[in-house]
Computed example of a mutant assay.
Amino acid sequence: MKIIIAGGTGFLGENLKEYFRTKGNQVYILTRKPKHEHEIYWDATHIGEWSHKLESCDVLINLTGKSVDCRYNDKNKKEIYSSRIESTRVLHKAVDQCIDKPKIWLNASSATIYVHSEKNLNTEENGVIGDDFSMNICKSWEKEFFAVHHDEIRKVALRTSIVMGKNGGAFPKLCQVTKLGLGGRQGRGNQHVSWIHIEDFCRAIEWTIHHEYISGCVNVTAPQPLTNEELMKKLRKRLRIPFGINSPVWQLELASVFLNTETELLLKSRNVYPEILMKNGFQFLYPDIDSALQKLI
């Protein structure tokens, strides 16, 4: 296949690139800072030479967007919003110009679209979507993505949870914190963590590409979320760290200022279930956190 990944130089994009290339596919990356062969310049805002690469491609994956791991001040909020909306909008313009359009377009979204939930398990059909900055970003992003309909293009919005991998994302930071003895529960510890192993993430993308009846919004997350307290306990055990200091909310609020981040990333309960993947026969290699940690550590 010919695969285009917009915004593909981050943790997820790099892993997808290697995954698909090892299977003999052509993978091109759209990035603001091209450094290697098969990396093409784009500014994620305007049509350019990059748009010609979309012609006759099999798969378009858009992962573009400013990281939410920052303080939610007015400037960062604006950039989080515009980076997602503008990149999706300009890809629509580029696709419109294609004679032979992509067969499938997968656009990033987030499991954060669902409300803080400690009891209700959010599926694609029955998930509760709320109203705050993060949820509204996801809603606006998906609205922009599905605003234009092309008969030739199958569209899938990837409501992805925390992706666990050794070479980026949240997992190395969690390990570092745990090794420093700070791997106790965060806040009350009863907030749910929805997660997926990076290998299953890549496999789920591939599976979705090859199952032509799958479209719309898909939860890309392992089927067994667990509480923050359970996650940290299992991580301590796997790393053989005998204790972990708990972090109350006030402490996390203070630390988040110095670390230039937001406590929502740790304290929001993301209780999400991949009903579409499960009902349609996707087989997880790492369905539970124990199997994932065994592979990662």
Rank of each mutant, 00 (worst) to 15 (best):
I5A: 06
N15T: 01
F20N: 03
R21G: 01
G24W: 03
N25Q: 11
Q26E: 15
Q26K: 11
I29T: 11
R32N: 03
P34Q: 08
H36D: 14
H38G: 00
H38V: 05
I40T: 13
E49P: 09
L54E: 07
E55G: 03
E55W: 05
N62M: 00
L63S: 07
G65Y: 02
D69M: 12
C70E: 06
N73H: 00
Y81H: 12
S82F: 12
R84M: 06
H92R: 07
K93M: 11
D96R: 00
Q97V: 09
K103C: 07
I104R: 01
N107K: 02
T112R: 04
I113M: 07
I113G: 08
Y114G: 04
Y114C: 07
H116A: 08
H116I: 01
N120V: 14
E124S: 04
S134Q: 11
K143E: 15
D151W: 04
A157T: 07
L158I: 15
R159H: 01
V163T: 13
M164W: 13
G165A: 04
F171H: 06
K173Y: 13
T178M: 10
W195R: 05
H197E: 10
H197P: 12
F201E: 11
E206Q: 14
W207E: 07
I209C: 13
H210C: 11
E212A: 09
I214T: 09
S215P: 00
T221L: 05
T221R: 01
A222K: 05
A222Y: 05
A222H: 05
Q224Y: 13
T227G: 09
T227L: 07
E229M: 11
E229F: 10
M232E: 11
K233R: 14
R236L: 09
K237H: 13
R238Q: 15
R240C: 12
W250H: 08
F258S: 09
L259V: 13
N260F: 05
T263W: 06
E264G: 12
L265M: 12
K268D: 13
S269N: 05
S269Q: 06
N271G: 06
N271H: 15
V272N: 05
I276W: 02
M278L: 15
N280P: 02
G281C: 02
L285Q: 15
L285I: 12
Y286W: 09
Y286P: 00
D288A: 12
I289E: 09
